[in-house]
Amino acid sequence: MSRANKNRRGIADLPSAVLQIPIVCSLIGLWYGLTETDILPKFFFGEPFKVFGVLWHWFTSGEIFPHLGVTLVETVLAFVVGAVLGLVIGLWLALNPTASRLADPYIKAANAMPRVVLAPIFAVWFGLGIWSKVALGVTLVFFIVFFNVYQGIREVSPVLLANARVLGANARQLLRTVYLPSATSWVFSSLHTSVGMAFVGAVVGEYLGSARGVGYLILQAEGVFDINTVFAGMLVLTAFALVLDQAVGVVEKRLLVWRPTHGETEKL
């Protein structure tokens, strides 16, 4: 920012947090006001201070951590399994036109199907433990990664391929030095979406039937109309998703150093 601009300090120059904190405070205040005056019934909308009480209890007693841990493990497993499967199958189909032509309608159909309906089947197959949630997450992550890799591989620059071939790459070396890095870069570029989907898979899976996890807490609370606990669970999930997204951002930055960021200039 130039010196001239600094002199006229407008609202836009304040740190974002200074503006964002009052917004969230007034939203909570509004929530409190509306429920306290019974404009909104407490039974359906909960009470902010009781919600914070639940949160306080969860974190001080440490009750929440095993549940968060389970949800995190499910998310990570769903992402890893889904991404690896998507990468391998995406690479394979992109490099094999015949297989790709045969598989095309099935892939489209599988992607079009609402994956949530699979949750009961996964529960039957894999039980109520973490694996049924991982399976649901995998079906969500797989297609994101798969389509990204598939498209990415088909758009690998022909000049890069020709260059590698002239430099003496055989088929395996071509896969390792051109196709794979190119495909992984597409996996990473869809990292935010796919990690988010893995998380959705885990929580929805838990919600539809489980014995642990944050989704399970919400399900239990809803069963006894404990709206405050439901809201507390939602807040925990939201915060957790934000932390996860930040972590992905850090990983992405480290892994994609070679990628030009928009408008980046560097002194030579």
């Binding site: 620059s157 000049v159 890069l160 020709a162 260059n163 071939r165 002239v166 051109v178 890095p181």
Partner: peptide, 17 residues
């Protein structure tokens, strides 16, 4: 492939990664 030849392309041919 011509194993004796090196080829310098018109377009960008470096691997960006």
């Amino acid at each position: 492939m011509n194993r004796h030849a090196g080829y310098m392309f018109q377009a960008e041919s470096l691997m960006p990664w």
